[in-house]
């Protein structure tokens, strides 16, 4: 059973220690970028499904500037077959509403060429951390969307059986395909890129689409297509060092800790 899978990946800062410019926007000069760490789980899951189902394909899909082809190379080095970059000033700089609309349009275009059964996402990105693009892509496509998936128990061309991690336990969810699925860490352990994968990544040539290739009007994407924007970022106040309990015996320190917790009405 051949399944065609799309996995969405984002090029994000490798370090979360971000400096701000005077207007409250993150400085980008000198920042190293790599595949969003949560997307590694989605890529791995897609490649595992492909390996179990002969004739399947995995296409990595990214949205960003031309330089973000590097994230597609990383995806190919981990086993994806092909990559598509949606790029251009019209599509970048949007909020999750606009970004998900663009990704949905790209998935629709891919699905017009060959059926797409499943679109996989990481749980969120490590930069904005919204964790909503996967669910919003599902909504734009009018497909089912399942978040927080820790296991794909079974999948065929029609349906998948998923384990959804809820706060109080596990929902087993049967979902008709095509669908969008957002993974969580527990779903697998991502492999490191193989030598063969790295070679393939080096040689890979990626499809590039702009807003007009996707039939999107300027007001559909980027900032004009957004419903929200980050006006600025601020650094939260640093927590100071508090009370240090030291000096007594372990038993005395334990008693002092419990006294303090009771005094401060914490227990």
């Amino acid at each position: 059973m051949a399944l065609n899978i799309v996995v969405c990946v984002k090029n994000t800062p490798s370090s979360l220690s971000v400096e701000l410019d005077p207007s409250g926007q993150p400085k980008t000069a000198g920042v190293l970028y790599a595949i969003n760490p949560f997307d590694e789980y989605a890529v791995e899951e897609a490649v595992r499904i492909k390996e179990k189902n002969a004739g399947s394909t995995v296409t990595a899909l990214a949205l960003g500037p031309d330089a973000d082809q590097t994230v597609l190379r990383e995806a190919v080095s981990r086993g994806c077959d092909a990559g598509v970059l949606v790029t251009g000033t019209e599509v970048t700089g949007g909020d999750t509403l606009a970004t998900s609309r663009v990704l949905a349009a790209a998935i629709r275009k891919l699905a017009a060429a060959q059926p797409v059964h499943l679109v996989l996402f990481g749980k969120s990105t490590n930069d904005s951390g919204a964790g909503s693009v996967g669910g919003q892509v599902a909504a734009w496509l009018d497909w089912p969307g399942v978040l927080s998936v820790k296991k794909i128990e079974s999948i065929d061309e029609q349906a998948a059986l998923l384990w959804r991690m809820m706060e109080d336990g596990i929902d087993k969810v049967k979902v008709g395909l095509p669908a969008a699925v957002c993974t969580v860490k527990e779903i697998n352990e991502p492999r490191i890129p193989s030598l063969k994968g790295k070679m393939a990544a080096k040689k890979a040539v990626f499809t590039k689409w702009t807003a007009s290739d996707l039939g999107l009007k300027p007001e559909d994407a980027g900032a004009p297509g957004s419903g929200a924007r980050v006006a600025r970022y601020t650094a939260p106040a640093k927590r100071g060092t508090g009370l240090r309990i030291a000096g007594g015996s372990a038993a005395q320190n334990a008693a002092q800790l419990v006294d303090t917790l009771i005094e401060r009405k914490l227990i």
Binding site: L97, S132, Q136, A139, L147, S148, M165, M166
Partner: peptide
């Protein structure tokens, strides 16, 4: 801000053409 709340928020935001902020 639960799994259910976020899942629902994603779909609602698209249906209502609304800006979305999570958490």
């Amino acid at each position: 801000g639960s799994v259910a709340g976020r899942s629902l928020a994603c779909r609602l935001a698209v249906k209502l053409q609304a800006g979305l902020a999570t958490d």
